[in-house]
Design a protein around this nucleic acid. Structure first.
Lengths: 244, 244
DNA sequence: GCAAAAGTGTTAATCTTACACCCATGC
DNA sequence: GCATGGGTGTAAGATTAACACTTTTGC
């Protein structure tokens, strides 16, 4: 009985050809951190419709490319960085969100050390912008940025991911400044230090800051195993239950 | 200078026509609750490649349809239900995940009261299945189901969403059974009651269970305002900070 | 010695967990 | 009266939040 209703994949594709005309893109919210400010890497839009506006770094997904590969390619192309930290956040698919046609986009955020990508100013139209106060992005990119920022804020106390934004060695003060920049709120210094040290993420390097105009702080680094788990292009560990 | 590099959307579309040949689908993990078990609504796959396997309810996104509308349409078509609770979870886009061609799918989960949709057995090939022990779904639907279940588990203590799975009136025991079915663990009765009542989600109806073969329990309902917020097809409130 | 930031501990409040006994109803 | 599940409280432990003073360094 049911066999009469079965159809082959080939048949299905032929009868649904109207549907195979959507493009899928990825848009990357690439966060960096500099001067105690959370930044995002943006590019001047090359579409007439958005002349003068900034947009996220993104690209269409290629026919022979997994969706999850695409944001890594975009980051490699735009920043030269491999082994970046990337997280899928949400997919946006309003009919008219893109003037070129029907483009559904999947948003990812990434955390990179801004030192590793200081764009040469003449090289291209890519620049770092403070996240705070950004308005008037191209497409629906402001919405995408806000959504990714909210997700980032939800994640930073759960998982040791912010270390992607810092160099290997850092003081607790630098770390707190970073958390404050991401969360947009002030934190109590003593409570912050307690919370972070209780998590057991850090290793005391027995080194001190240098060249600071005040009492130098101790330097820490992320535990090697956590750096391997959370500071590469691995998303699986955010999904897994963290075994402390 | 840059004006020379600007292109119109029309031009962009023409030069990227190879990319506009992906289909986008939505797949709905429709959860129900019956006999103290979490269930999911599945349909017999109508593809030869997956003969005999069950799959999630899904459909291709139509050219004139927002991505976010599509799962509501799927639920209306398949269950006749409007105003359902739906949440986007994740988008899956491996190259070969669908035998008909390149289909990127966005997964949603939905919570419905199973009483409102008891499929007539001869009507179609749609049936409720226990989530526990399900294997061998068509496509990558097992992965999608697992991902949505995990998200559901993360959400139920944060937001009053499980009430979509129950009738209007329920006892605390029924609610606890439901939480246990979703989480897959046993909960302490006294602690559960404390946690739930502390959240202030419930209104004591001053009514009692009837026709139970033991001491009847008190009946409760979800506060009206929360029912409006969390038990319709509204996703915005899960994003917002819950003001207690 | 002064400015600037590092470093540190206690208390109160809240939340979480574990755990045991009596009560109301149907049969 | 017995079986079934309803209903309740407390103590210990963990977590969070608020809060101030002394120390070290560069200048």
């Amino acid at each position: 009985m049911t066999a009469l209703h079965l159809k082959t994949a080939e048949f299905e594709k032929a009868t649904h050809s109207d549907f195979f005309n959507i493009a899928v893109s990825v848009d990357c919210v690439i966060f960096g951190y500099e001067d105690k400010k959370l930044k995002v890497l943006l590019i001047k839009s090359d579409l007439e419709e958005f002349d003068g506006l900034w947009s996220l770094l993104g690209d269409l997904v290629r026919p022979n490319e997994d969706l999850e590969e695409a944001p890594y390619r975009v980051l490699l192309d735009r920043t030269g960085l491999k082994d970046v930290f990337l997280q899928q956040v949400q997919t946006f698919g309003s009919i008219n969100r893109h003037p070129s046609g029907r483009v559904v986009t999947t948003a990812y955020y990434s955390l990179i050390n801004i030192i590793n990508h200081q764009p040469k100013s003449l090289e291209n139209e890519v620049h770092w912008h403070s996240v705070k106060g950004l308005e008037n992005l191209a497409f629906d990119h402001k919405l995408i940025l806000d959504t990714c920022l909210k997700r980032l804020q939800e994640q930073i106390m759960e998982h040791p991911i912010v270390f992607n934004l810092l160099g290997e060695k850092f003081s607790l003060r630098q770390l707190q400044d970073l958390y404050e920049a991401i969360l947009g709120i002030d934190l109590d210094r003593r409570n912050f230090r307690k919370r972070i040290t209780l998590k057991g993420w850090l290793v005391d390097l027995n080194e001190m800051e240098e060249d600071v105009p005040h009492r130098p702080g101790k330097l820490y680094k992320l535990r090697n195993q956590l750096r391997k788990e959370f500071c590469l292009g691995e998303k699986k560990h955010l999904e897994a239950v963290v075994s402390n």
